[in-house]
Lab assay of single mutants.
Amino acid sequence: HMTFVALYDYVASGETDLSFKKGERLQIVNNTEGDWALAHSLTTGRTGYIPSNYVAPSD
């Protein structure tokens, strides 16, 4: 899985969403939902949907 870094803070709007903080590292599990991606946080160990425009690929 590619690793991504959060560009902004995001507060989950539902139970299936994943909250994260700017700078948090995430792995995209499934990116077939258009503007949303299923992601796993390497920081918190949690998995949920995130807005895909809130993250960018990290080196």
Rank of each mutant, 00 (worst) to 15 (best):
H1G: 14
H1K: 11
H1I: 13
H1D: 10
H1T: 12
M2H: 12
M2V: 11
M2Y: 12
M2C: 14
M2W: 11
T3M: 11
T3P: 06
T3D: 07
T3V: 15
T3Q: 09
T3E: 11
T3I: 15
F4L: 07
F4D: 00
F4I: 05
F4P: 00
F4T: 06
F4N: 01
F4H: 07
F4Q: 03
F4Y: 13
F4R: 04
F4M: 10
F4V: 14
V5S: 04
V5C: 08
V5P: 01
V5L: 08
V5R: 04
V5Y: 09
V5G: 00
V5H: 04
A6C: 09
A6H: 00
A6R: 00
L7G: 04
Y8S: 07
Y8L: 08
Y8A: 08
Y8Q: 08
Y8C: 13
Y8I: 06
D9M: 03
D9C: 06
D9W: 03
D9H: 03
D9Y: 02
Y10A: 01
Y10D: 00
Y10N: 02
Y10T: 00
Y10K: 01
Y10E: 00
Y10W: 08
Y10L: 02
V11E: 12
V11N: 10
V11D: 10
V11Q: 11
V11K: 09
V11R: 07
V11A: 08
V11L: 08
A12F: 03
A12H: 04
A12L: 03
A12V: 04
S13Y: 10
S13G: 09
S13T: 14
S13D: 08
S13N: 10
S13K: 13
S13P: 09
S13I: 14
S13M: 13
S13A: 12
G14R: 15
G14S: 12
G14D: 08
G14P: 02
G14T: 11
G14Q: 10
G14C: 15
G14K: 14
E15P: 14
E15W: 08
E15T: 11
T16D: 13
T16C: 15
T16F: 15
T16W: 15
T16A: 12
D17P: 03
D17Q: 15
D17R: 11
D17K: 11
D17S: 09
D17Y: 14
D17F: 15
D17M: 14
D17W: 11
D17V: 07
D17E: 15
L18N: 03
L18I: 11
L18A: 06
L18C: 05
L18H: 02
L18K: 02
S19Q: 05
S19Y: 04
S19G: 08
S19I: 06
S19M: 07
S19T: 09
S19A: 07
S19R: 05
S19D: 06
F20M: 07
F20Y: 03
F20L: 06
F20I: 10
F20P: 00
F20D: 00
F20T: 02
F20R: 15
F20N: 00
F20S: 00
K21C: 11
K21N: 07
K21A: 09
K21R: 11
K21Q: 10
K21M: 09
K21T: 09
K22T: 06
K22C: 07
K22W: 03
K22F: 05
K22N: 02
K22P: 03
K22H: 04
G23D: 04
G23S: 02
G23F: 04
E24K: 00
E24S: 01
E24F: 02
E24M: 02
E24N: 01
R25V: 15
R25N: 06
R25H: 11
R25D: 03
R25K: 12
R25Y: 14
R25G: 03
R25C: 14
L26R: 00
L26V: 04
L26Q: 00
L26W: 02
L26A: 00
L26D: 00
Q27M: 14
Q27H: 12
Q27W: 14
Q27R: 14
Q27L: 15
I28A: 02
I28N: 00
I28R: 02
I28F: 08
V29W: 14
V29G: 05
V29R: 08
V29F: 13
V29T: 07
V29A: 08
V29Q: 08
N30S: 14
N30V: 11
N30L: 13
N30Q: 12
N30Y: 14
N30A: 14
N30K: 13
N31S: 11
N31M: 14
N31L: 14
N31Y: 15
N31T: 12
N31F: 15
T32P: 12
T32A: 12
T32I: 14
T32M: 13
T32H: 11
T32D: 10
E33K: 12
E33L: 14
E33F: 14
E33Q: 12
E33V: 12
E33R: 11
G34Y: 06
G34T: 08
G34H: 08
G34P: 07
G34E: 07
D35I: 11
D35F: 13
D35Y: 13
D35A: 13
D35S: 10
D35L: 11
W36F: 08
W36I: 05
W36Q: 04
A37E: 04
A37R: 09
A37Q: 11
A37L: 15
L38G: 00
L38A: 02
L38Q: 03
L38T: 02
L38H: 04
L38F: 12
A39K: 00
A39V: 13
A39L: 01
H40E: 07
H40N: 06
H40S: 07
H40L: 14
H40R: 14
H40Y: 14
H40C: 14
H40K: 14
S41P: 00
S41F: 03
S41T: 01
S41K: 01
L42D: 03
L42R: 03
L42F: 07
L42H: 05
L42M: 08
L42N: 03
T43F: 06
T43V: 11
T43I: 09
T43D: 15
T43H: 08
T43Q: 08
T43A: 10
T43M: 07
T43Y: 06
T43P: 02
T44I: 01
T44K: 02
T44Y: 02
T44D: 03
T44S: 09
T44F: 02
T44H: 02
G45H: 08
G45R: 04
G45P: 01
G45T: 02
G45V: 01
G45C: 08
G45M: 05
G45Y: 04
R46E: 07
R46L: 11
R46T: 04
R46N: 08
R46C: 09
R46K: 12
R46F: 08
R46Y: 07
R46H: 07
R46Q: 09
T47C: 13
T47S: 10
T47G: 05
T47I: 10
T47F: 10
T47L: 07
G48W: 02
G48K: 01
G48H: 02
G48E: 01
G48Q: 01
Y49N: 05
Y49L: 10
Y49C: 11
Y49A: 03
Y49D: 01
Y49M: 10
Y49G: 01
Y49H: 06
Y49F: 11
Y49W: 15
I50T: 00
I50G: 00
I50E: 00
I50H: 00
I50R: 00
I50Q: 00
I50M: 03
P51W: 04
P51V: 01
P51L: 05
P51H: 04
S52Q: 09
S52T: 14
S52W: 15
S52Y: 15
N53P: 06
N53I: 10
N53M: 11
N53F: 11
N53C: 14
N53D: 09
N53T: 10
N53R: 14
Y54D: 01
Y54P: 02
Y54K: 05
Y54H: 07
V55F: 10
V55D: 03
V55E: 03
V55M: 07
V55C: 07
V55G: 05
V55T: 05
A56F: 10
A56Q: 11
A56W: 10
A56K: 10
A56H: 08
A56N: 08
A56E: 09
P57R: 10
P57F: 12
P57V: 11
P57S: 09
P57K: 10
P57D: 07
P57C: 11
S58E: 15
S58T: 11
S58D: 14
S58P: 10
S58Q: 13
S58Y: 14
D59Q: 12
D59A: 12
D59R: 10
D59Y: 13
D59K: 09
D59P: 13
D59H: 12
